[in-house]
Amino acid sequence: MQRIPSMQALRALESFARHGTVWKAADELNLTRSAVSHQLRLLERELGFQILNRIGTRIELTQQGLGYAADIRQALSAISGSASRYAGRGVSGAITVSSTPGFASNWLCNYISAFREAYPDVRISVVTPRRLDDVSNPDVDIFIAFGTGNWPNMQVERLMDTEFSPLCSPALLYKIGGLGEPEDVKKACLLHLTDHEDWQNWFALTGVDRDYAASGIIFSDMNLVFAAALSGQGIAMGDRFTCRHAMESGQLVRPFDIGISSQRSYYLVASEAKADSQAVVAFCYWLRSEMLEIDADA
């Protein structure tokens, strides 16, 4: 059997392929940028074919590299899934998970039964906070929070970065005669979550008058924003992760291939006292496995 490359090199390749930059892969793997670059070079040498293109100081994957990375992602997902099927045996207890409303209703509620199947002896409760970055509830064991990652005296792990772009229903798109260019969003009502920031940033990126971002309707909950968008009341700013099912089913469409990278991300947050509990460790392990599997299917 041909020698299998090191797991660290394969994880470096998978992370680099998913994020597109060495620094993001290094951040995720808790390595230096030079260490990730070194692992990629060693892997290329060991494989015997070119997986990297070097353009000035930047590197990108070749077509062979992209194909190999996709295979590795599926293999890592299979390994992770196999481990999770056996890890649940003997794990018991109770866990309360606090999740942002959008993440809870649009993702967690669609996959939570898989956790119950993997860990049938763990009792789980899901609650939602008032603020997306709130990790103060003492009754909660693990938080899925959306913020900058600055939670002192807590164990913090970044779960996923986000990119926002306009989303709307096909019915609205038909009603307003389509959206040919960014300026055309002015033909519809803008839907906001708590403030105008996301639309202001998108207008700044696309050259649309930022003053128009102050128009429209502000909602206090992402579920309300989605409900309004689904019923054709306007155009929302959403990310492809939490809106995945609505987009795959055709309920929401992305009229522009232009997104803004958020300065905030999804994080797993737990107090030092609760982070090592059996049920919390099991939930975090399961959630990471699901994230990896979704990336493999993307």
Rank of each mutant, 00 (worst) to 15 (best):
R54G: 00
T96E: 01
W107K: 04
G102V: 14
S105W: 05
T21M: 03
N30H: 13
I95C: 05
L31R: 12
D27R: 10
Q63E: 15
D27K: 11
E60G: 06
D71K: 13
Y68D: 00
I59E: 01
I51V: 08
I51W: 02
L42A: 13
Q64C: 06
N106D: 10
S105H: 13
R18V: 10
G56I: 06
G93R: 09
T57I: 05
V97F: 01
G102L: 14
R73Y: 00
C109Q: 14
L40N: 04
A87L: 15
A17L: 03
G56R: 06
S82K: 12
G56E: 05
L61H: 09
L31G: 02
R58P: 01
L61M: 09
G88Q: 06
G48E: 09
A25H: 03
S77W: 01
A26Y: 03
A9R: 14
S80C: 06
L47D: 07
Q74P: 00
G65K: 08
T32H: 11
I112A: 02
F103W: 09
S98R: 01
T100H: 06
A26T: 09
E44W: 05
R45K: 15
S105E: 11
R33N: 14
L31V: 08
F16M: 05
Q63N: 11
L47T: 12
I79K: 06
Q74C: 02
G65T: 08
I59Q: 02
L10K: 15
N106E: 12
S37P: 00
A25Q: 02
N30Q: 12
A104D: 13
G67R: 11
S84F: 03
T100D: 09
E14R: 14
L52I: 03
S84Y: 01
Y68C: 01
S77H: 00
A114L: 15
L76I: 10
Y111H: 13
R41H: 10
S92N: 09
I59K: 03
H38D: 06
V36T: 09
Q63C: 05
S84W: 02
S37G: 03
G102M: 10
A35C: 12
L29E: 08
A75Q: 05
F16E: 01
H38N: 10
I72S: 05
E60T: 13
L52N: 02
G67Q: 10
S92G: 01
I72D: 03
T100L: 04
A83L: 15
G20V: 04
S92H: 08
R89W: 03
A94E: 09
C109D: 13
F49M: 14
S82N: 14
R89L: 14
R89I: 15
A35I: 10
R89Q: 13
R89A: 13
T62E: 01
L13F: 04
E28C: 07
V97Y: 00
L43I: 12
S34D: 13
L43M: 11
L43G: 06
A78D: 08
I59T: 07
R18F: 10
S105R: 14
T62L: 02
Q50E: 14
S80A: 15
H38W: 04
R11K: 15
G56K: 05
Q39S: 12
E14N: 14
H19W: 08
Q63H: 09
Y86V: 15
A83W: 09
Q50D: 12
F49G: 08
